[in-house]
Structures are given as structure tokens and as C-alpha cells.
Nucleic acid binder design. Structure first.
Lengths: 210, 210
DNA sequence: GACCTATCTGACTGACCGTCAGATTTTCGT
DNA sequence: ACGAAAATCTGACGGTCAGTCAGATAGGTC
């Protein structure tokens, strides 16, 4: 029951409608990537699937609602990353584990960057739905990271002036933003591999204190 | 000559027009802060200064042009921050110097966050003018940071797997993004002071290796 | 006060948003 | 296989905003 798909007015919809709704979501994601949120128009989304604007409003009250749904889907793809962040990174394998996480995070980011960017903008502009989704996604990662920092602080490898939760936030911030800079940095000689190595090294250092 | 103020069509304008243009820029900044870029309308900007849309287009070809100008003004406010980032942070005063920079950066961010957010969005969505402005602003800080990292690497305090320029980018990324998270983190117990301390500690560590 | 130039704006066209009534397609009972 | 009922889709419309232009207004000069 709970996972029935609903139309904009809340009624449960059938298989044809689910397919249409799906095509609308895919088109929204595609145009968000190609044109950016500022030029995203409902007309274009529906034109893309060979339909009319009225169809869009059958399933979403506005474009935000569609983007919010995409953001929730992105969160699902982020969940597996948490498994790569367990306390216990040591001198032998820690840096390699950091690389694993960075690699997985880069794939995640590549897949969803347009939606994540839109989500973050909306969240920062104060939209509470997007805030909730972003906070939920970030907490997944941050709680795992904070546990690692706490371990490092307890073991006296990290200074206790580091607040674990804030440090976790800083690490997430760094990952997110550095990947957003990527296209510009590529032009200045920092290739993908340099970013990967540097990010892994910084993570390893900030999280473990080794 | 070069610093004459121009209208949208390129002609030099007089004092009355300069004042009007200024009021338009101020109103744009205000509404960008209050409503966000997605709900920014030319009608609202001109209504705010008691004028009509046509007036706006006398001075700017579109809203982007006004935001771009604001972004350039923000860059001017960022320049003084570079003075706070000189190689030579040592064990005695380094952490304090990191705090100085973080404090100044936080003020800068508070003042311009709406414009910077808009600038970053536009840059990330591929607008080359905004990319150029952002790159220029970031390079100011990054070059200074990269010099500090290079010093740390040369002194063997930092691992040479850290690419100086990428590390600098990561540090900027961390500062920028963490402040954007601030409102949400406040709700979870990370107050402004925790952010300040953590950021300074991480900066000090990443830049000097102490 | 008459003229010239700089500045401003009313009014218009075209595009998109969001709605609704009615058309079309699918489902289902017989 | 057929017709009625339900689900889904869309043409067409009123409202708002973007961007343009011709003409109105204000300011300066002689």
C-alpha cells in the first residue's frame, strides 16, 4: 500500500500512468543535466516525452516535486557508500580504503550531480522539503564519518579540538565541492587522478590522524 | 575612461543613471538574498526601486549581467583575505593565524552568500562568464594556499602524494561548503564556534602538516 | 524660455505556467 | 467480442513575466 505510486492529487495510479510518470522523471533528470535548473521548463519536459504540459501536472504539483523525487532516488544510491566508512582504517590498509570510498563517491556524484546541485540550491534557499532530503542523505555519511573521527580522537591520534560531527561535515563538504570544481581544475592541470589521490590522502589524514 | 559606467548598449552614462544602476544592483542583491535566484524577477527588482522593467534593460541585457557584476564586486572583497595566507605558519602562531583567516572568510561569506551561491550555480551549469569570475576569485586564494602546501611538502611535513594545487582547492571547497551547511548544522548542535574551531584546526593541519 | 540630450516608462508581443473540461485509451463484466 | 465505466491524456484558455520600442519626462545649456 505504502509504495503505491500517487498522482498529484493523491490518488493511486495504474501501470500506464506509472510509466508516464517515470518518463517525466527521466526527462526532468535529463534536462536538468543538459540545461540546468534555471532553464528547466515544464513545456520542455513534456515535449521531450511527446506529451503536453497538462500531463506533467497530473503527476506533480510543480517542477520542484519532480526534482525532490529525483533527489530521494539519489539518496538511495548514496546508502551503499556508508558500508565503506567503518572505523578501523589502519596504517596498512587505511589509505586504500579511503581510495575505495573516494572512487565510489565520484561515481555517485557523476551519476547525480545535476540533481544534487538542484537539491543543494533549494535546500540552501530554505526549502524545507529539500532541506530534509539533503540532511537525511548527509547524515548517512556524516554519522559514519563522525564515528571514525571519534575513534581517532579517543586514540589521541587526532586533536580534541576537532568536533567529530563538524569534522565529518567538513569532509563531506570537501568531497562534494571538490568534485563540483573538477571541470575547472582539469583546465589547470589537476586531472581526475590528482583529485582522487589528494582527496583520499586528505580523508585518510583527517579521519584517522595517521 | 576605462572605469566609465556603461549602459546595456555600451554608451557612457551620467550621474543620475549611475545612481539608478546602483539602486538596481542593490535591489538585485537584496532580492537574491531574500527570495533566491529561482524566484528572482525583473519586475520585482524594478518594483523595489519604484521603477519599471524597461529601466532595468537600460543598464543590463539580462538578470545574469547584474548578478555577474555583483559577483565581481564580491571578488573585490575577497582580495584582502589573501594577505592572511602567507607561508610560514608555525607551531607557535599557526593555529591562531588559521583562526584569523577563518574569521575573515566567515564574514566575507555572510556578506555575499546569496551572490556567491548564484555565481557558483551559474559557473557549474557552464556559463563561461561566471566561470571566469569564480576561477579568478578562487585562484586568488588557491595560489596562496598552494604555496603554503608546497612549503609543507618540501619540509617533509606533508606527504608528497598531496598535489599542492588540488589540496588548495580542497581547502577552499571545505570552507565554502561548510559555511553553506551552517544553518542545518546549527540545528544539530554544531554551533558557529564549533565550525570555526574545526575549520581552523583542519586548515592548520592540511596546510602545514604540524 | 527654447532647445538639446539623457533618462525613464507605458504599452505591447510572445512565451510559459497552471487549470479544466472534454477527448481518448484501457479495463472489465457479460 | 462488445459496450459501459474508469483511467489517462490534452487542447485551449486566463494570468504573469520577459524583453522591446516609441514616445514622454527631466536636466542642463545658452
Amino acid at each position: 500500500m505504502t509504495d503505491d505510486v500517487l498522482a498529484a492529487d493523491g490518488r493511486v495510479i495504474g501501470t500506464r500512468a506509472i510509466a508516464t510518470r517515470r518518463r517525466l522523471l527521466d526527462a526532468t533528470a535529463k534536462l536538468l543535466t543538459e540545461q540546468g535548473i534555471l532553464d528547466l521548463r515544464v513545456v520542455d519536459i513534456t515535449r521531450d516525452i511527446g506529451s503536453s504540459p497538462a500531463t506533467f501536472y497530473q503527476y506533480f504539483n510543480d517542477v520542484d516535486e519532480a526534482i525532490l523525487e529525483l533527489a530521494k532516488e539519489a539518496t538511495e544510491d548514496e546508502k551503499p557508500l556508508v558500508r565503506l566508512l567503518q572505523p578501523g582504517w589502519n596504517k596498512k590498509t587505511g589509505l586504500e580504503q579511503a581510495h575505495h570510498f573516494v572512487d565510489a563517491y565520484m561515481v555517485f556524484w557523476d551519476t547525480h550531480h545535476a540533481v544534487l546541485r538542484a537539491r543543494n540550491l533549494k535546500a540552501e534557499e530554505g526549502n524545507r522539503h529539500f532541506r530534509a532530503v539533503r540532511t537525511e542523505a548527509n547524515l548517512l555519511i556524516m554519522n559514519a564519518l563522525a564515528a571514525m573521527v571519534t575513534e581517532g580522537v579517543n586514540a589521541k591520534r587526532l586533536p580534541d579540538s576537532l568536533d567529530p560531527f563538524t569534522t565529518a561535515a567538513a569532509v563531506v563538504a570537501m568531497c562534494e565541492r571538490l568534485l563540483a570544481f573538477q571541470p575547472e581544475m582539469a583546465k589547470r592541470g589537476s586531472d581526475k587522478n590528482a583529485i582522487r589521490n589528494t582527496l583520499a590522502t586528505l580523508l585518510y589524514g583527517a579521519l584517522t590522524g595517521h
